[in-house]
Design a protein around this nucleic acid. Structure first.
Lengths: 393, 393
DNA sequence: GGGTATTTGTATGGGACCCTGACATTTCCC
DNA sequence: GGGAAATGTCAGGGTCCCATACAAATACCC
């Protein structure tokens, strides 16, 4: 039973950290900004922002760009502040079926270096994972010291304690060995979180979630996962065991799910269902069907078009829960569904709207992630940045 | 489309307010505590707490109790700090079908004065509501000036802007007239929020939600409503239009709901469903059946017992969404279900557990509110206290 | 081209607050 | 009754923000 965290009192020393974090957050949310812009935004004197920014510039985190000349506005032009190319460099790690992807990402969201190690993640032990990861980090680690390592794990994570509670897809990641091992081998601070939540952080830092207070990033394909950003902060619950939207019951008398319940969203909105249904309908290539292939078929085959409509309906059904319950209006889809193109996007959006309460339905916006395949990697970097700069106090 | 709130920078002047709020919050969460207790809790020197508390005592908000003698511990005994009987007195308002309840509540949760005005809330206009409310407040307003007025409205509220977006049960409350009118007539600060959310605040301040970081307060009966406290803070979404758990679809091909969707939780977990089902089964007194009457019948009638089981199953189905999606483990039920007694409570708890993911199901605890009928009233006072002391920054 | 208004960024003094360390007070234990 | 332990308070030092003033850079107007 989790208990209330102890009250944190503010100290004069903490003010500095908090305000530096808030200024950084404002720069992330609004892009390169001058001191005067930031001062107006926060409603404080320019001198205050100047002092805060001075520390960040001295630390090499921010740098001043050239004065923005010729804007047609009278007065001395401001010098926009933005992250330096070597600022906030994090080692980002994400796992796929057959490999470990490792990259150096700066606070701008540029991927500076990238490599990978082939590895059967389904069978690899924790030691194998540690070796492959640490080796890859060492290989791309350049002159600038990374500020930390971020791990995106497909599984249940407790990010506060820095451990993986369980991972079906990468069993070797379970427990604290992976995090401890990588920390020991690299000598860096290591942060870990569920991949769907990490993707949400990727959107928040570098993608279409920038400046959006509340949104959901949804992973689609073989599994379903959701990362919720509520009022500017990633929601993790009291520990990491949340966000299991896939196991919200949407079909009371539906098929049994691998989790032991019945009628979970996951039973009708993953590729497993799509392929089984395609096989039942006799569609070609049913056993390898995905949203992209379905979209291609739908253009010339009536049955495929109908299946796509049902597929969109199913995908939207789970998302509508978020609309009605939490008032979430903005969705960013990752993974398989992105291949479905505009046709699928519009259909899923309609499906969500159709299952949402009237006074809010028309505000629902559903888009495909523009970060796409790099979302988890960039998100892992965002995880390091968020934790390092404690962007919520 | 809501945009990101402006960054709030901490100032030396704000430190005082924030720390006073946090100390108050700690006292609310942990009950009467000495300076030394609070200092240990927050991890700061006793001198710091002493200075913060001094201001609160000077303002008359806190008072020192007698030293706690004879505790068996060596050393000078601490003097516990607790709210004075005249501290944080708020005027709390809640609406029922046929009346307006008004009470003076102090920060201890004591109801100092109470009165009501008979009023058909379904037909009363905003002017009628203002007159009845302001009149009742004036009648019980004693020597001590209330710090504000709290309104619990059964409807969709935007508490930040202080207006009621829509209320089916009290149509006259819609718009800003009620809030503005009461503020004008009483000369006090007025705060408003949805009754389910307000009940959650009641539990957080004065009930079983004290010291619990994350829980859901659920209103049952003719309608369904939920107030979510997530990590110590009431969740309101980007505006007030959230918490419509009643309109989460739990029966894909179910009955049409008054909201225009089909298969909403509300269609199978309100008294309307219970009575219709009871009538279909030929139970006596079906048209006035409630959880209390059903529990009485279930002891001697097999059919009633089966209906109670289905009723519990239905109630639990919507709550399980909160478990799986948000990791909420603690539920406090208000309203009709409380009448069902331990039999219904245990059955609903089992139902929630049965529809929750295995790794979290056994941690689910469901209880009936001990505040019961006063929950909304006490919550309205809690709303005033929360807003006045800005208990989250 | 020169003067003025406007805007940006920086320097300085003042105030609020917390932390460290020391001290008086009160209780329990032997 | 003396020592140990715990509580609450006081003074000195440091950090940070705010208000104000000032230098620098640009656009506009004549």
């Amino acid at each position: 039973m989790p208990s209330l965290p102890p009250p944190v009192l503010l100290t004069t020393h903490l003010i500095g950290d908090v305000n530096r974090s808030r200024v950084l957050q404002a720069i992330v949310d609004h892009g390169p900004s001058s001191r005067a812009d930031l001062a107006r935004l926060a409603g404080v004197p320019r001198a205050t922002i100047g002092a805060i920014v001075q520390g960040l510039v001295d630390d090499g985190l921010l740098e001043q760009q050239e004065p923005s000349r010729g804007t047609g506005r009278v007065g001395k032009p401001g010098r926009p502040l933005w992250f330096g190319p070597q600022a906030g460099v994090a080692a980002a790690i994400s796992f796929t079926d057959a490999s470990v992807r490792v990259a150096l990402v700066n606070a701008r969201g540029d991927i500076l270096e990238e490599t990978s190690r082939v590895l059967d993640t389904a069978t690899a032990g924790s030691a194998d994972l540690v070796v492959a990861t640490a080796d890859a980090v060492a290989a791309i680690r350049g002159a600038t010291e990374p500020i930390g390592v971020g791990l995106a794990i497909p599984g249940v994570c407790d990010s506060e304690r820095g451990l993986v509670i369980a991972s079906g897809q990468v069993p070797g990641a379970g427990g604290a060995e992976l995090v401890m091992g990588v920390a020991h081998e690299t000598g860096l601070a290591v942060f870990v979180d569920n991949d769907a939540r990490v993707q949400a952080l990727g959107e928040k830092w570098f993608g279409d979630g920038r400046g959006v207070p509340t949104f959901a990033a949804v992973q689609t394909g073989h599994g379903l996962g959701v990362g919720l950003v509520l009022r500017g902060a990633l929601y993790r619950g009291d520990d990491g065991r949340v966000g299991e939207l896939g196991h919200v019951q949407v079909m009371p008398d539906g098929e049994p799910c691998r989790c032991g319940l019945t009628g979970c969203w996951e039973t009708v909105a993953t590729l497993r269902w799509l392929r089984a249904e395609a096989a039942r309908l006799g569609l070609p290539g049913a056993d390898r069907l995905d949203s992209a292939a379905l979209a291609a078929l739908a253009g010339k085959d009536e049955t495929a078009a109908e299946l796509q409509a049902v597929w969109a309906e199913h995908l939207g059904r789970g998302l509508a829960v978020l609309v009605n319950l939490l008032g979430i209006r903005r969705f960013l889809l990752h993974g398989d569904a992105v291949g479905g193109g505009e046709g699928l996007r519009a259909a899923v959006e309609d499906s969500v709207r159709g299952a949402s309460l009237g006074h809010i339905a028309h505000e629902v916006e559903l888009g495909f992630s523009s970060l796409d395949a790099d979302a988890a990697l960039l998100g892992a970097a965002g995880l390091v940045l968020s934790e390092t700069f404690r962007l919520a106090v």
